[in-house]
Structures are given as structure tokens and as C-alpha cells.
């Protein structure tokens, strides 16, 4: 799958309180959550970002709480993919469970806001101005899970088979 989009660059340790502050966690509506995405450090992010754009981060992206509202908020803005040097583990699972793709690659210091990137998602290829790298492969187990249509589709089929 080939994705094309613009870069929105963030730093290290982008925690889930930045991605979606806790005061909005009573909401489950993706639209509401999206409208507060990155609010503490980039209050107008949700207005400027366009469908198909990417977030590029540094180390430990998504650290902090287990709130699934974080990948939901990112997805609600039409962002299909986050590329970061590394991801916090709960955010990593949550993202794949929600359908937000993640690629581990150390490109944050080589991109600027607005750069156009072309991504070969399954191969992990990342190409853009002065960049032609391959991300760390998505673990085979996660690929299987994606092929199953995500954890909930897998569960749904399991339950239907039982019934």
C-alpha cells in the first residue's frame, strides 16, 4: 500500500496527555477527540492538518497513559500513519488495534513540516526530500493481526464461529 502525504513534525516523548488531554477523555466521539489532538503544544494542529498527512516523531512516541482516545484522535483527523524513532508499548498496541499504522524509523531530524513523503507501508519504505530509508519491519505477528482485519474482527469471527 502506497501512502502520500505531508509531514507534521513533533519531538521526543510526545505523551498521550499531549495527544489528547485527559479533560476530554469522557468523550468517545472521534470528531470531538480529533478537535483537541495535540492541543497543549499545537492548539491549531487539528485545523491545519489535512487528510492523509503524517506525524513524524522522535523517541518514545505515545508514552504515558493507556488511553485509546490517543490513536482515535489522530485517526479522526485523517492521519493514517505515525513515523517515530520509537513508540511506547501500550500506544503501539492501541494504534494497531484501532487501524493507525506505525513505522519505526529515525527520520525526525531529517524532515521539516510540510515535506512530502511517499510511504510503502508493508515494505516500510520511506521516501522524501533527501530521504530514502526503510523502516524497521512491522513484526510478523502484527502483520497477521492486520491481515485478520484487526483484533476486534478476529474476535468477532471467533465469536461467530462459536455461535
Amino acid at each position: 500500500m502506497i501512502l502520500k502525504g505531508r509531514v507534521w513534525k513533533f519531538g521526543d516523548n510526545i505523551d498521550t496527555d499531549i495527544i489528547i488531554p485527559a479533560r476530554y477523555l469522557a468523550h468517545t466521539d472521534p470528531k470531538v477527540l480529533g478537535s483537541h489532538c495535540m492541543e497543549p503544544i499545537a492548539p491549531d494542529f487539528h485545523e491545519k492538518v489535512a487528510k492523509g498527512d503524517f506525524i513524524v516523531g522522535g523517541s518514545n512516541f505515545g508514552c504515558g497513559s493507556s488511553r485509546e482516545h490517543a490513536p482515535i484522535a489522530i485517526l479522526a483527523l485523517g492521519i493514517p500513519l505515525v513515523i517515530a524513532r520509537s513508540f511506547a508499548r501500550i500506544f503501539y498496541r492501541n494504534s494497531f488495534n484501532k487501524g493507525l499504522a506505525l513505522l519505526e524509523a529515525d527520520i525526525v531530524d531529517r524532515v521539516k513540516d510540510g515535506d512530502q513523503l511517499e510511504i510503502d507501508l508493508l515494505a516500510g519504505g520511506i521516501a522524501g526530500p533527501g530521504i530514502d530509508v526503510v523502516a524497521k519491519p512491522i513484526p510478523p505477528f502484527m502483520i497477521e493481526l492486520i491481515n485478520e482485519g484487526g483484533l476486534m474482527n478476529y474476535l468477532k469471527r471467533r465469536l461467530e464461529a462459536r455461535a
Partner: peptide, 9 residues
């Protein structure tokens, strides 16, 4: 800790 979807599973 896990997210809500893993918890459902």
C-alpha cells in the same frame, strides 16, 4: 496496562 480494545478481547 492495555488499551480499551485489548481489554475487550
Amino acid at each position: 496496562g492495555v488499551g480499551s480494545t485489548d481489554l475487550t478481547y
